[in-house]
Simulated assay, not measured.
Amino acid sequence: MKNKLVPLENAPKLLQKIVKAWEKAALNTGQPQLKQLGQALPKNWLEYVDIYEVESGGRSFRLQKPGNKVIDITKQDLWGRTAKDIDLVYGLHLHEDMLAVYSNQKPVIHYIHVFQDHNRTSYRALIPVFTTKDAEDPSQILLCLVEK
């Protein structure tokens, strides 16, 4: 199954809340920062999030902090790996998807197969966040993974 784009209203409630918090922060400050998102979300929201650092101006995305629930869903702790590394092992297009979010500077939600088990599906949001409100480019891409 190819990743399928999902409208916000059809996404799981947690992903809706995260994207809406991002949109609100974007309206208020222009460039949403990670600390801003957490203020409006459930305390455990980061358990569903892998935090990827942007490296070399968007040429690479490296997993810096895996979320516990993401590990539970995927059965993998991919800490330290790049999106390209993950693509090579699992035949994905994660790097390409992250690059699009980095370039467009807007969140996107997909309905996907969990890469280790093609019988399992999940919803994945990729969300750009910035170091400061004045930053031109995202410093991190959040990969939020939720089963419905």
Rank of each mutant, 00 (worst) to 15 (best):
T131Q: 09
E147W: 00
K148V: 08
K2D: 12
K4R: 14
G80I: 02
K84H: 13
A21L: 02
L94G: 06
K65D: 11
V54D: 00
I109A: 02
N68P: 11
F61R: 00
N104Y: 12
D85H: 02
K43N: 15
Q33D: 10
D97I: 07
K2L: 09
Y111L: 07
L142C: 04
G38L: 06
D97L: 08
L63Q: 02
D137F: 11
A11D: 00
Q105E: 12
V146I: 15
L126I: 01
G38S: 13
S122E: 07
H110G: 09
L145C: 03
Y90F: 09
Y111E: 07
K106V: 12
L37W: 05
L126V: 06
W22H: 10
D117T: 06
L63I: 01
D137C: 15
K43I: 10
A40P: 03
E55M: 11
E136G: 07
A11K: 08
Q36H: 10
D50E: 05
T131L: 14
A26I: 09
Y48H: 14
F61V: 00
R81P: 06
T82L: 01
M1Y: 14
W22D: 02
K2Q: 10
Y123P: 03
L8D: 04
L27F: 10
N104F: 13
A100H: 08
G30F: 07
N10G: 07
E47P: 06
F130M: 00
G91P: 01
R59S: 10
M98I: 03
Y90W: 07
Q39L: 11
A25Y: 10
W45F: 13
M98R: 02
R81L: 12
Q33T: 15
I18E: 04
K75P: 06
D117N: 09
V70C: 09
L14Q: 03
K43E: 14
L14P: 00
G58L: 09
L99T: 15
